[in-house]
Design a protein around this nucleic acid. Structure first.
Lengths: 208, 208
DNA sequence: GCAAGAAGTGAATCAGGATTCATACTTTCA
DNA sequence: TGAAAGTATGAATCCTGATTCACTTCTTGC
């Protein structure tokens, strides 16, 4: 009879897990999933590689959690703008702009979330979250339809189109190669063009 | 004074290389890039793994070539419909339909080309080809604009949006998981919905 | 037919990370 | 304080394929 799981220890454990997760996220923000290795993470957290396994069953689970952590924020940011007052069209517009803006402002992370080659467990989360973004847009599309703002026959598919269009138009400029070639000033210009194109393209079909 | 590179030998070499490439493509068509390994390919080609290296500098180069081989076909198919007579709008419509149809008809391959996690050398080609599809659409967009059919401020970006929308709306249903869950009949229905949604979505903005 | 030079072979090796585990250290509590 | 039980360590091991290379087998041109 010795050493029970005291509340303090449990709390410390949870805190440490959280801490590790944050550090892992920092690595991904910095260099994408490619730079998230167990050794590097352990070093960053100043612990032994083996200790990581007390908190996570394996690399895949860890990476998937990091992905979710980052994506959840994006979902929430999107949710926030989509839930404001205003017509469905206005809100969609604001949503698209927010999405693009956020991606543009943390390009390495956006690229990691949208397009970096990742292992299957992470890819699975990617699909889930793309679905989640689409569902948010779909919700607003349905509302707009109910209020007679426009007609959409398959909100869910239209929403997927939106997510695809947004991602694709961002991926080119976001990719590490592309980023290496353009100046900061050009990049800001690019965003403006991308933004207005996206708005026209995604919402144009609804107007008609 | 012995063993020169006779024309016959060179021809045989080229033929063998071509043959290996086709077998590699077959593996990818069958099970995606994940199932393209040097050992498996060697076995399929009935040769030693080492011999593959006489034709290809390494796995990456080989995989990239396979990707190009498959993608080139798609580009050509798209080019073909986009080059027919008719208004730009009609041709765009036909292009989108062809793209979706082809993807639907060889789902494993389409998924491998569009969304499967692949190594960097292949990812690079992926970007190039997405660019190529976009350029084809952009060409037609410019023609339509010249003929006064519609206005587009950034044909290249709009084209990227189209490619993104098409890919995304296909990726969901194309992914191995999704495919495992739906019947053949459902799948044909899905295609119809996807197709009409894509047409509306991609061309709707142009009409206005 | 034969020697020189290619091409083919495939088991062994390498590479790069994830994962394990014997060992050492901490915490708990009677 | 000390025994019991948990936690931390990190070098060693494993894993999965790609890649190599010493050796064998063909081709060619005389």
């Amino acid at each position: 009879m010795a050493y029970r799981h005291t509340p303090e220890r449990q709390a410390r454990d949870r805190a440490q897990r959280e801490h590790v997760l944050q550090l892992a996220l920092a690595l991904v923000v910095e260099g994408g999933f490619a730079s998230l290795t167990m050794q590097r993470l352990a070093k960053a957290a100043d612990m032994a590689t083996g200790s990581l396994y007390r908190h996570f069953a394996g690399k895949g689970e860890l990476a998937a959690e990091v992905f979710c952590l980052a994506s959840q924020r994006e979902v929430e940011a999107l949710q926030e703008v989509l839930a404001t007052d205003g017509s469905a069209l206005q809100r969609l517009r604001a949503g698209i702009e927010r999405f693009a803006r956020r991606a543009w402002d943390s390009r390495q992370l956006a690229w990691a979330l949208i397009a970096e080659p990742v292992d299957p467990q992470v890819e699975e989360q990617r699909l889930r979250y793309r679905e989640a973004y689409a569902e948010l847009f779909a919700g607003v599309l349905r509302e707009g339809e109910q209020h007679g703002e426009f007609r959409v026959s398959h909100p869910h598919l239209v929403a997927a189109c939106m997510v695809g269009a947004i991602s694709e138009v961002l991926v080119g400029p976001l990719s590490p190669q592309a980023r290496a070639q353009r100046s900061e000033a050009q990049v800001e210009d690019d965003l403006q063009q991308v933004r207005s194109t996206l708005i026209h393209f995604c919402l144009g079909a609804l107007a008609s």
